[in-house]
Design a protein around this nucleic acid. Structure first.
Lengths: 195, 195
DNA sequence: GTCTATATTTCGATAGAC
DNA sequence: GTCTATCGAAATATAGAC
C-alpha cells in the first residue's frame, strides 16, 4: 500500500491473491503456509513479503475483495427501511455470490480466521458487513417472524448458491439463481394461503 | 481409545472436550493451542496427551459428538424416498441444532479444519453426513427445483437457528423453532398462489 | 493420571545482497 | 522486485519420573 503505485503495477500482487484464494479454499487459511504460496507462485517467500506485510495482510486483501462485492448492495440498507428493502438486498447478494463464488466459499470455510482478522483491524473504516446484518436482524422495530425469515433467507441464499458447482455442477448459474429467487420469495412470504 | 475403560472413567476426557469445544468456537481450531486447553483445564499439556493422542483426535471426538446428534435423523434417508422424507429430516435437524447449538457453531466456524480432518480419517466407518446430503441433492431422480429448494431449506435452518442466542438472544428456542419450521414449510412449497 | 522437561518441526518474518 | 540465509517464536508431540 505505501508503494508509489506506477502504471500496470500490482500484477504480481493480484497473482498472489489469486493463488492464496485458491489455497485458502483448498487447505484452509491456517494450514496454508507462505512457503506453499510462494512455491505455486514460482517466486520465493521473501518475494511475497515484498508485496504483503504479513499473512494476515493477504487475508485482509481478500476480505476487501469480498467487501467490495457486497458493499454497493449494502449501501442504502444502513438505516433505511429494512423489511421492504430486504428482498432487493438478497437479489443483489445472489448476483454477487454467483459472480464471485470462490470469495464466498473462502469466507464460509474460514470464518474463524476472518473473525480473528477483523478483531485486529478495529480501525476498519467500514463496519463489518456481518455486523450490519446482525444489527438489522436484531432490530426490535421489525416483527420477530419477519426477522427470523430474513435470517433464514440469508442462509437459504448462501447454501443454495454455494452448492452450485458442487451438487448442481451442470446447472447454468442463471437458472439456479432464478430458482433460488423464487424460493426465497416464498420463504419471505408467510404462507397464509397454504392449507 | 486403547484404554481399558474402567467404571466412571472419561470424566477428565469429557472436560477436555468441553473446554476444547468452547475454545475452538472462541478462537478457532487452529489458533487454539493445547497449552491453552491445558491451562483452562488446570492440568499440564502432557495430561491432555494422556487422554488424546493428538490435537486432531480432540477435534475428531467432537466431530463424533456432532455425528451422534445427527445420524439418528439421517438413518432412513440413506436410500429411502427423499423428497417426501426431507421435511421430517429437517424437523429432526432443527431439534438437534437447538439442543446442541455449540456443536453446530463449532462446525460452521471451522469447516476447513473439519474437512482436513476427515481427509485423514478415510477409514471412517460411517459416511460423512455432509457427503450424504450432497449425494441426495445431486440425485437426478428428483426435480431440480425441489433439490435446490432442499438445499435452501438446509441453509435456512442452519442460519435461522444459528443466529439464535445471537441476534435472537432473548427469544425462547421453541418459539424460534416454530417460526423456522413455518418458514421452511413455505420454502419447500412452491408458491403457486402468489402473484 | 499427572508432572517436568525436552525433542522436533515448521512457520512467520527479517536482513541484506543483487 | 526478487533472491539466499537465518532468526526467533510457538506449536505439537514425546520421554521418563512420580
Amino acid at each position: 500500500m505505501p508503494r508509489p503505485a506506477g502504471a500496470d503495477q500490482g500484477t504480481t500482487k493480484q497473482r498472489i491473491l489469486d493463488i492464496a484464494l485458491q489455497l485458502f479454499i483448498e487447505k484452509g487459511y491456517d494450514k496454508t503456509s507462505l512457503r506453499e504460496i510462494a512455491e505455486r507462485l514460482g517466486y520465493s517467500k521473501a518475494a511475497v513479503y515484498y508485496h504483503f506485510a504479513s499473512k494476515d495482510d493477504i487475508l485482509g486483501a481478500l476480505h476487501l475483495r469480498l467487501h467490495d462485492v457486497l458493499d454497493e448492495a449494502m449501501t442504502g440498507l444502513s438505516q433505511a427501511g429494512t423489511e421492504e428493502t430486504w428482498p432487493k438486498l438478497l437479489d443483489q447478494f445472489i448476483d454477487g455470490m454467483i459472480a464471485n463464488r470462490d470469495l464466498f466459499v473462502l469466507h464460509e470455510r474460514n470464518r474463524a480466521a476472518f473473525e480473528a482478522l477483523h478483531m485486529k483491524d478495529h480501525h476498519e473504516e467500514h463496519e463489518d458487513i456481518e455486523r450490519q446484518l446482525r444489527r438489522v436482524l436484531a432490530d426490535v422495530e421489525i416483527p420477530l417472524e419477519s426477522r427470523v425469515r430474513m435470517a433464514c433467507s440469508l442462509g437459504a441464499v448462501t447454501l443454495g448458491i454455494m452448492l452450485a458447482g458442487d451438487a448442481f455442477d451442470d446447472v447454468p448459474s442463471d437458472q439456479l439463481a432464478s430458482i433460488v429467487r423464487r424460493a426465497i420469495g416464498d420463504l419471505l412470504t408467510p404462507g397464509v394461503f397454504r392449507t
